[in-house]
């Protein structure tokens, strides 16, 4: 069991952890969509690292932890 910032996350196994945390991190309302694309794994990774750097700079990982995230290559 993992308890969250204000209430318990709905998570009983490690397999559910990501979804539970994404849900907890987004807060109320519609989640922002995160789409990361690259023509291959290397490009995809670089694109994502740029997004991580931006999120770290602004100290806002809301989009990174969005339940509506898609990684495409």
């Amino acid at each position: 069991m993992v308890s969250g910032i204000s209430s318990s996350l709905d998570c009983d196994s490690i397999g559910d952890l990501a979804a539970a945390i994404y849900q907890c991190a987004k807060g109320p309302g519609e989640a922002e969509e995160l789409v990361v694309s690259g023509s291959n794994l290397s490009e995809l990774t670089e694109s994502f690292k740029i997004k991580l750097a931006e999120a770290a700079k602004s100290q806002d990982f809301t989009q990174i932890l969005s339940p509506r995230h898609h990684f495409e290559m």
Partner: peptide, 17 residues
């Protein structure tokens, strides 16, 4: 600053117990 993954609603990874 990255590991904590802070979000706009006040969430951060270490705030999860």
């Amino acid at each position: 600053s990255g590991f904590r993954l802070p979000t706009r609603n006040g969430f951060s990874l270490p705030k999860v117990s």
